[in-house]
Design a protein around this nucleic acid. Structure first.
Length: 486
RNA sequence: GUCUCCUUCGUCUAGAGGUUAGGACAGCGGGUUUUCAUCCCGCCAACAGGAGUUCGAUUCUCCUAGGAGAUACCA
C-alpha cells in the first residue's frame, strides 16, 4: 500500500519551528518510503483565520524548498485540500454518526457550560462536559430542532472500557474511556467541524496511512480512534513526535526567542542550516556526522531513529550550523544570499551594477569565514561603500602608544601603501613588519590605527586585502583624514 | 487535581547485559594569526533515586521522584 502522509496546518498564525519540523518529518517519511506528502489546510477556526497566514505558509515552504505531491495549490486525486471547501462533507458525516447513535445533538449554551465548569473547579472535579444532552428524549430533541435552537454535535465516548492504539514511536498506549475527553464537539454551532472531526474524515478520504504529529496530540488520539470505530473505518498508523521546548523546558514560544520562520529568514539564517538543525532535533542519523542535506535525510529518515523525549531548542547550535553552511557556499551563491540584506540596509542600491558586483565578489572570501548570520554582512562591508567617520583619537591610538607615535605610524603606513604591491601578501606584510620594527612598535599596533582609519572599526576583514579592494587612493585619503584630525 | 507520555554531560545525541560511557554545540585553556573570525589541539562535563532479575546492570522489570503535555464550540 502506498504510504501517504500529510502536513495539516491551521492558518491561524505564522509558520513556526514546531510546525515546520512536523512538516519536515512527514516529508522525510514520505520520501524515505516512496510515498506521497500531502498539504492540507485546516481552516476551520474562523475566528483566528487570516489570509496572510495562508500566504505565509506558501512563502515559508517555498523558501525552504519543500514540495508536496498533493495540495491546495497543485490539486491531487483527493481535492479539494482546503477544509472550508469540504464543509458539507463534515456536516454530512456528523449527521451520519447521530443517525447511527454514535453522536448526539447538544443544545447546551455557553452559559451552562460556563456554570458546570465553575462548579467542577470549585469541587476540584475534572473539568469537562457533563453529558447532559446525551440522554435527551427524542421528542425533546425534535422540539429544540424545530424551535431553531442552536446546537452542536457531540461524539459519544463509551462510558466504560478502554481505548488503545499503537504508536510507531511510543508503543502501545491505552486510555480508560472515562479519562477520554467526555463527548467532544464534532460540529460547532456555526456549522464548521472541529479539528477532530475534519481531521478524521479527511485522513480517511485522503487515504492517509500514517499520522506523524507532535506529542501534544496524544490525549486526543483516543477520541479519534473512537470516531474511526464509530464510522467503521480503519484508523491510520500513529507516530507522535517529540516536542520542541525552550531553554526553560516549556513548549517553545515567542518568549524564548525567534520561533516563526519569518524571523529566521529575516534574521539571516540559511534554510539549509534550519532544515539540518530541525531534522536533527530529537533524532540522529549517523554517529560522528552533523551536516546532512535535505536529500541525505530523505534517504536516511526512519522513525526508529527518533528520540522519545522532548528536545530543547538550542539557538547556539543553530548558529553553528548557520556558520557552517555559509562557509560551504560558493562565492556566487553567497553573493546572491547577501545582496537582499545589503539592499535592505541601504549599503547598495537595488540591482547592484557591475562594479558593485565585482567589488562584492572580491569581498566574498574575506567575509565568508566571518559571518554567522547573513544580517552581519552590512556591518562588515559598509566601509567599502561609505566613508567611515573619522575615528575619535581615543580609538585611534593603540594602548601604550601616544599621539605622536600614532601619527608617525599612519604617515609611514600611507607612504608604504603608495608603493606596496597589495596583491602580494608576503611582501606587503614584510614591508609593514620592517616599518613597525623601525618605529619600535608591534605589527599589530602598527596596523590597528590604519584599520581604524580605513574601515572605521577595530574589527574588520583582513586589512591588506580590504585596502586592495577598496583602492589604495581611498585608503590613503582616509588615513590622511585621520592624521588631519590630530 | 486527573490522565498520558518522557528521563545518558549545561544542550542535541551515540551506545551495549561486561566500554576508560563515544560524538557535536556551548563553556574553559592553548596553538596559528595584522583585528575579528576561520582552522587545529586539549580540558571540563552525564547514565535521576530505590528495589528486583543476573556472576554482572546505565542497559531488562517494578516503584518513587522529577519534567512535559492534555484537560475548549483552538488546532
Amino acid at each position: 500500500m502506498e504510504v501517504r502522509v500529510r502536513y495539516a496546518p491551521s492558518p491561524t498564525g505564522f509558520q513556526h519551528i514546531g510546525g515546520v519540523r512536523t512538516a519536515l518529518f512527514n516529508y522525510l517519511f514520505a520520501r524515505a518510503n516512496g510515498g506521497a506528502f500531502i498539504l492540507r489546510l485546516e481552516d476551520t477556526d474562523r475566528t483566528r483565520y487570516a489570509d496572510e497566514y495562508v500566504q505565509n505558509l506558501y512563502d515559508t515552504f517555498d523558501w525552504l524548498g519543500f514540495k508536496w505531491d498533493e495540495g491546495p495549490d497543485i490539486g491531487g486525486k483527493c481535492a479539494p485540500y482546503v477544509q472550508s471547501q469540504r464543509f458539507e462533507l463534515y456536516r454530512e458525516h456528523a449527521e451520519k454518526l447521530v443517525a447511527m447513535g454514535k453522536a448526539y445533538y447538544c443544545f447546551c449554551d455557553e452559559d451552562r457550560l460556563e456554570r458546570i465548569r465553575k462548579i467542577q473547579t470549585v469541587n476540584k472535579m475534572a473539568p469537562g462536559y457533563d453529558r447532559h444532552c446525551r440522554s435527551l428524549a427524542p421528542d425533546e430533541i425534535k422540539a429544540n430542532l424545530d424551535a431553531g435552537k442552536s446546537f452542536v454535535i457531540r461524539l459519544k465516548i463509551p462510558l466504560e472500557g478502554a481505548t488503545a492504539f499503537h504508536d510507531l514511536l511510543l508503543g502501545d498506549i491505552e486510555w480508560k474511556n472515562e479519562d477520554v475527553s467526555p463527548d467532544p464537539v464534532l460540529l460547532k454551532s456555526d456549522g464548521f467541524p472541529t479539528y477532530h472531526l475534519a481531521n478524521v474524515v479527511d485522513d480517511h478520504f485522503m487515504r492517509v496511512t500514517h499520522v506523524l504529529r507532535a506529542q501534544e496530540w496524544i490525549p486526543s488520539t483516543p477520541m479519534h480512534v473512537v470516531m474511526y470505530e464509530a464510522f467503521g473505518w480503519m484508523h491510520p498508523e500513529y507516530c507522535h513526535l517529540p516536542m520542541v521546548m525552550g531553554s526553560d523546558g516549556h513548549k517553545l514560544s515567542k518568549r524564548h526567542g525567534a520561533t516563526s520562520m519569518n524571523e529566521f529568514r529575516n534574521g539571516g539564517y540559511l534554510k539549509e542550516a534550519v532544515i539540518n538543525y530541525i531534522g536533527m532535533l530529537g533524532a540522529s542519523y549517523e554517529e560522528g556526522k552533523d551536516l546532512f542535506s535535505l536529500a541525505e535525510m530523505e534517504m536516511l529518515f526512519r522513525v526508529d531513529k527518533l528520540n522519545k523525549a522532548p528536545a530543547v531548542f538550542d539557538y547556539k547550535k543553530l548558529e553553528w550550523f548557520n556558520g557552517q553552511y555559509i562557509r560551504l557556499k560558493t562565492d556566487a551563491e553567497l553573493y546572491e544570499l547577501i545582496v537582499p540584506f545589503l539592499e535592505k540596509d541601504g549599503v547598495v542600491g537595488h540591482a547592484p551594477d557591475g562594479a558593485t558586483k565585482a567589488l562584492l565578489f572580491g569581498v566574498m572570501p574575506l567575509i565568508k569565514e566571518r559571518l554567522r548570520y547573513l544580517t552581519e554582512v552590512s556591518g562588515m562591508v559598509r566601509f567599502f561603500f561609505e566613508e567611515p567617520a573619522v575615528p575619535p583619537l581615543a580609538d585611534l591610538v593603540p594602548k601604550k602608544l601616544d599621539v605622536s607615535k600614532t601619527r608617525a605610524i599612519l604617515a609611514r603606513a600611507s607612504e608604504l601603501l603608495e608603493s606596496a604591491d597589495l596583491s602580494n601578501h608576503e611582501s606587503t606584510e614584510a614591508a609593514f613588519r620592517a616599518a613597525a620594527d623601525e618605529l619600535g612598535v608591534k605589527l599589530g599596533d602598527m596596523l590597528m590605527p590604519v584599520r581604524m582609519a580605513v574601515t572605521g572599526t577595530r574589527v574588520s576583514p583582513p586589512l591588506f586585502e580590504s585596502i586592495r579592494i577598496l583602492g589604495v587612493e581611498k585608503a590613503r585619503s582616509r588615513i590622511g583624514s585621520a592624521i588631519a584630525a590630530f
